[in-house]
């Protein structure tokens, strides 16, 4: 699964740490997601979707191997 968190984060100009505080996860989790090393739970995906005010599909996309 890939995501465009980094781009979205740049668009609203928020740091990894601040975003982590907003959705109550550790900064490591945001970092790992952006690197594609961690696939978040549905709850976390929905929290991100609510924060960026975008549907989940616009933040996360399936890849061929998924």
């Amino acid at each position: 699964m890939k995501n465009n968190l980094k781009v979205l984060r740049a668009m609203v100009n928020i740091s990894q740490g601040d975003l982590a505080d907003k959705i109550q996860v550790s900064r490591q989790t945001i970092n790992a997601m952006e690197k594609g090393k961690y696939v978040p739970s549905t709850v976390l995906a929905l929290k991100l979707s609510r924060f960026f005010e975008k549907p989940v599909e616009e933040i996360f996309q399936l890849e061929d191997e998924d």
């Binding site: 982590a20 996860v25 550790s26 989790t29 739970s41 709850v43």
Partner: peptide, 11 residues
Amino acid sequence: KVKREDELISK
């Protein structure tokens, strides 16, 4: 729990 326990830490 660590200071900020979240799903990645649990994993």
